[in-house]
């Protein structure tokens, strides 16, 4: 396939710098993957499999190992499924509802602003619901994003019941004939049972009001987060049946490699990546580009 080849092509450069497939090679590969926050056990399994494969095929030259590495890495992400970029599930002539969830400060509200802008650019009629009634300034923050993206924001007072705000949002979206309603929620740590129940209740309200909704439940993950992201994905999925991930803050130095383990273990795909704080800084996720990014440092170091 085309995408896989381009990754292999880039991996070529990396392999060229290591002549022999020896312990040092594997050790550095392990460190590269761990420092990118790829799950520890995922890395250990991968390295074991690689070693076995190298032995089985009697590979000594690092040139020959490159295919195995690229195969295995892309395999971790996609499993047996087709390599494709995951699209948002948006209905053609009906209201689609997107629920956005995640722990505190990961970038939910910001990502909603960016996504609203993208959808609006595509000619969609978008409405936002200010479901974070808890954090200081959260409603005002979403309103600013609403202005920037030029879309309406449905809100109540701070402290009111989030499920009631979302209910209002659905009513307004219907009466305005909106194409997409995006619901903001307050950040919550996944081990807070009552807050997770509150979120499940918000989802139930959506399910009750619009059959087939929510069409997407997007979990926002901060690329800076380490192993805990796996626990976040598990628990939020249990509470709200997450359909996709938005991986934010990839414009920093963190790599967000934990999404490989998340896709591998929980089969939740990444749909978007956040690359900054501006309206335009949201892109579709490309697994091959992402996997290649994990090796960028290794390339720089060895080419110095």
């Amino acid at each position: 396939k085309k995408t896989r080849n381009s990754f292999s092509g880039k991996l070529n450069d990396l392999i060229a710098r290591y002549r022999k497939v020896d312990e040092d090679f594997f050790e550095e590969l392990e460190e590269v993957l761990i420092s990118a926050d790829v799950g520890v056990m995922t890395v250990m399994d991968l390295i074991d499999e690689l070693k076995m494969e190298v032995k089985r095929r009697n590979i000594k030259d690092s040139k020959e190992v490159k295919d195995v590495i690229s195969e295995k890495l892309v395999e971790i992400y996609y499993g047996d499924e087709d390599e494709e970029i995951e699209e948002l599930n948006i209905q053609d002539n009906d209201l689609s509802i997107i629920l956005v969830v995640g722990v505190n400060g990961v970038g939910k509200t910001t990502s909603i602003g960016k996504l609203a802008h993208q959808l609006k650019q595509q000619g969609k009629n978008v409405v936002l619901a200010a479901g974070d009634t808890f954090r200081a300034g959260a409603i005002e923050q979403l309103e600013v994003w609403g202005e920037r993206a030029d879309v309406g924001v449905i809100k109540q007072n701070a402290g009111s019941d989030p499920a009631a705000v979302i209910f209002d949002g659905i009513k307004a979206a219907k009466s305005r004939n909106a194409d997409v309603l995006i619901c903001d929620t307050a950040g919550r740590l996944q081990n807070k049972v009552n807050l997770m129940n509150e979120l499940a209740k918000v989802k139930r309200v959506i399910e009750r009001e619009v059959p087939g909704a929510p069409h997407e439940v997007l979990l926002v993950l901060d690329a800076t987060t380490g192993q805990n992201a796996l626990s976040q994905a598990k628990t939020f999925s249990e509470a709200t049946d997450v359909s996709g991930i938005v991986l934010t803050k990839l414009d920093g130095t963190a790599k967000g490699g934990i999404v490989l383990a998340i896709r591998n273990e929980l089969n939740i795909p990444v749909k978007y990546v956040g690359l900054g704080e501006q309206l335009e800084d949201l892109q579709k996720f490309d697994a091959n580009a992402f996997v290649y990014g994990l090796f960028a440092d290794m390339l720089e170091e060895t080419s110095e």
């Binding site: 926050d37 400060g105 800076t224 987060t225 380490g226 805990n228 130095t253 963190a254 790599k255």
Partner: peptide
């Protein structure tokens, strides 16, 4: 610093 930060904490 967010306690959930991964390997990047040292760079930051």
């Amino acid at each position: 610093v967010d306690a959930m930060t991964g390997q990047d904490a040292v760079n930051v």
